[in-house]
Amino acid sequence: MPHYISVILDDERYAKIKGTPLEEKITYLFGGQLKSLVVEVPEEKSEQILKTFDKARIDSRGYIEDVPVAFRRAVFEEIAKAKSLDVIDKVLERLPEIQEAAKKEDEYIPPPEIE
């Protein structure tokens, strides 16, 4: 059974895919207030993700959650580059680099600049 990764689109990310075929694949949640792209992850690859990141887990919706921010960022970067949702192999190729970045996340995640 496949699992899923949801990539939230804030304004900045949305601007990067606007006008591409990906726009049609946006899932609108909570009355359209939240946009996301959903990447399907075959079971053996989701197992690899769970093994790599000890906090990662499958939630009750079948989504892979509690993965490092660096992982989600990489998923979006690959989506934006390929203009496709078929990116999981590319992301997995970057695992060593993502793991390195994730180590730092145990200590520090930069807070957003909001008022």
Partner: peptide, 23 residues
């Protein structure tokens, strides 16, 4: 249904995405 998943929200928070007020 669109569930209020705590871990989904934690992911959103960690990414610095301002959650919509309905969430």
């Amino acid at each position: 249904k669109q569930k209020f998943s705590g871990s989904f929200l934690r992911g959103m928070v960690a990414e610095g995405v301002f959650p919509p007020r309905v969430v």
